[in-house]
Amino acid sequence: MRRQRLGDTLFRAVTRGFALGVLLLLGAIIASLVSGSIPAFREFGPSFLISTAWNPVKENFGALPAIYGTLVTSLLAMMLAVPIAFGIAIFLTELCPPLLRRPIGTLIELLAAIPSIIYGIWGLFVLAPVLQSVVQPALIGSLGEIPLLGVLFAGPPLGLGILTASIILAVMVLPFIASVSRDVFLTVPPLLRESAYGMGATTSEVIRDIIIPHSRAGIVGGVMLGLGRALGETMAVTFVIGNAHHIKASLLAPGTTISATLANEFTEAVSTLYTSSLIALGLILFVITLIVLAMANYMLWRMGSREEA
């Protein structure tokens, strides 16, 4: 009897230990990144965050171009992905014949299973040439002619750059946003939906007036989750962003992101200051994604607790 009770205490302690381990893991990641980035912050101070310099030879580094590229590609990707993802979620919950619901949902989710590097190689060899020869000249010829807005589409069609990276990112986050939105759309009580249809509302009115208001927190959570993924995405972006440490107004120009800079340069960095600057970039990326993901999970958790209530 006593041996059994000892077994219980031990088993509980072990599982508790591993649960604590998960908490400690996050702390250890932050601590190791902070300690690794100390030399860079000591050398450059807070101006590391706003400097646009990136000169490995003179050892002068600044994070702004990478931060800018990370934010711009991710936001642009969200602008492209969110409407399409909602369309898919609406299709799967409201329009799709029940028999096809699972297969189509699964196919969309398989998009999320394809590894980042596959998107990279596809973006480089298939998407970029098409963009360069067809889409970008069309953009330059049409939107590029408009004053003010034209700045965004100036310059030669290179195929590689901010826009290409954003499109690839949009495809990659699409399945996440679509499947989270579908799941929250499905939490709308059938009674509400059917009452609206019963009063003569059209499908689009049911979506606008019943489904979206009811699942707002969940939708925002899903979008933020997608944003968190886009911010940290590495390989696909590294292939198609062009890897240039500068800030250009044009979306067709090459740029860089934090993750692409790390992937390209980390193993080539020889000096302590170079390595430390790259680790500091990693720390900045981790902090940004932590904030976005924490907000996303809070929104989804709020949605979940309302569902149970």
Binding site: A19, L20, V22, L23, L25, L26, A28, I29, S32, L33, S35, G36, L225, G228, R229, L231, G232, E233, T234, S259, L262, A263, F266, I279, G282, L285, F286, T289, L290, L293, A294, A296, N297, W301
Partner: peptide
């Protein structure tokens, strides 16, 4: 609750940062 919350964050954390972490430690 804390473990669940942190775990959900780690689920989507950028994998390149995990690489950096293992590099450092």
């Amino acid at each position: 609750m804390a473990v669940r919350f942190i775990n959900d964050i780690l689920l989507s954390a950028p994998s390149i940062v995990i690489g950096l972490f293992v590099y450092v430690v």
